[in-house]
Nucleic acid binder design. Structure first.
Lengths: 250, 250
DNA sequence: TCACACTCGCGCAAAGTCGCTCAGTCGCGC
DNA sequence: GCGCGACTGAGCGACTTTGCGCGAGTGTGA
């Protein structure tokens, strides 16, 4: 592996975990402890992380997508969520992915006579007090940073579910139609969601083009509808239209 | 554990508790008293806490987030829960049923290095802020008044799980050893739990003999251990002993 | 005041971690 | 093919942290 990408991977791990002992870093990067130490030392010298005896601590704030206090780019997300909410008819079962955009969508679903299935603990907390909405949680390991459920149990639960629509969030969409995510563990869950609904709707604000992300979730062909804003890169939208995706710009 | 993170954890504990004796700090941090003293001394030197003879006092304001909800017969439930907590070893996976007694048990599991699998949303809320405990939620429909997950999805999740012990609550136990519950929808989940653990432990305060309940969950033979109080009806206990159940009276 | 139990800080030995050196491996250009 | 530089993993001595024992210090109740 090229050193640079391993450095990036280490930083990503740290953003996800906050703190990691050197032994754990070595294990996760599949290198010797000596090398892990060298990497940590390099990045510490570059000021990208904080070195402590026995391990490393993230210098950049730990990724907390639901820092709740403020959602980045909120108006755009609300607009996309509103577009998505319009699609949903009474009596439907909808599958909601994790993320801030789908959380905005959940906020718009209060009082609707629908069934919401989700792996997002944030969505659960938003809707748990609402008697009208029937709420189903997928099982799985609790990921505290992301307030989500992941793992083998989540995928097993998805095999038992078939929803009318799934609303997927994303961290970035490339011009060739690839849909990305920043955290690898979420990818299998997102893929399983795609297979558990009649219609797949991707929610992506203009800033998500190209956005960020290192793991590929799926491509344009796997999506049925894309809901985005007016400012979204036209070339990418053309790619999606060619793949028979219905593009809605709110 | 890394020293820095242990320092943070100590400060968090202090914010939660206000005051803590050194012995208690050592126990909760799982280090020797000598080390706990050193940590307290470090942080006191840095002005992060106030040192007093025998312990430490938070300098930052104490968090008191939740008012404890009223639990009926609380002391008895706490005693039974304490007996159950003693059984659990580090590294174990435990399956927790819904109910107030198992919730008391969850309260005693803070800071333990274990995996807790549960269908109880109350247990999830109790443990979600605790980084030490690895938490797994079974999926299912959200039942708001019982703060639980039930249904086909919950049973499907249980088929994927095998725990070291399951801790079951109950609404009533009859003299012939039948274990009851008041709500029928929970029964299939409880039965599935019995099949998903090496050892089945029933938690039942003396008032649960005979208690209430119309639905039969299981019988004495299906249980491996019964944890109850001193005042429990001896005839019923005899039934359980005859069925090879280990009876613990706390 | 005094005895007693508890707590404190220090020295020590064991365990764990660090950074360094060194030899081996790999890719690359000549 | 062959040397070169970059990178890796193992070994080693130095350093840091940890738990325990000990003597001194501190709070409590008779």
């Amino acid at each position: 592996m090229l050193r640079e990408t391993r450095h990036e991977k280490l930083l990503r791990l740290l953003r996800e975990e906050g703190v990691l002992p050197v032994v754990e870093i070595a294990r996760r990067l599949e290198v010797s402890e000596a090398t892990a130490r060298r990497d940590v030392s390099d990045l510490s010298g570059a000021g990208r992380l904080r070195r402590v005896y026995g391990g490393a601590i993230a210098r950049e704030p730990v990724e907390r997508p639901f820092a709740e206090e403020e959602v980045d780019d909120l108006p755009a997300k609300e607009a996309v969520a509103a577009g998505a909410a319009q699609l949903i008819r009474n009596g439907e079962t909808v599958l909601l992915d994790i993320g801030t955009t789908t959380l905005q969508l959940a906020r718009l679903l209060h009082g609707r006579k629908i069934t919401v299935v989700t792996s997002s603990l944030a969505v659960y907390e938003e809707l748990r007090a609402d008697d009208e909405v029937s709420l189903v949680l997928l099982g799985g390991e609790v990921r505290r940073n992301y307030r989500s459920l992941v793992g083998q149990l989540t995928r097993a639960a998805l095999r038992e579910i078939y929803a009318d629509r799934v609303f997927l969030g994303t961290s970035g969409v490339l011009a060739d139609g690839r849909v990305l995510d920043t955290t690898e563990v979420e990818v299998p869950v997102k893929r399983a969601m795609l297979g558990s609904a009649r219609q797949a709707v991707l929610l992506a604000t203009p800033r998500k083009f190209p956005g960020t992300g290192s793991a590929r979730v799926c491509q344009a062909e796997d999506i049925d509808m894309l809901i985005t804003g007016q400012a979204t890169d036209p070339a990418t939208l053309a790619t999606f239209r060619e793949a028979d995706v219905e593009v809605v710009q709110v």
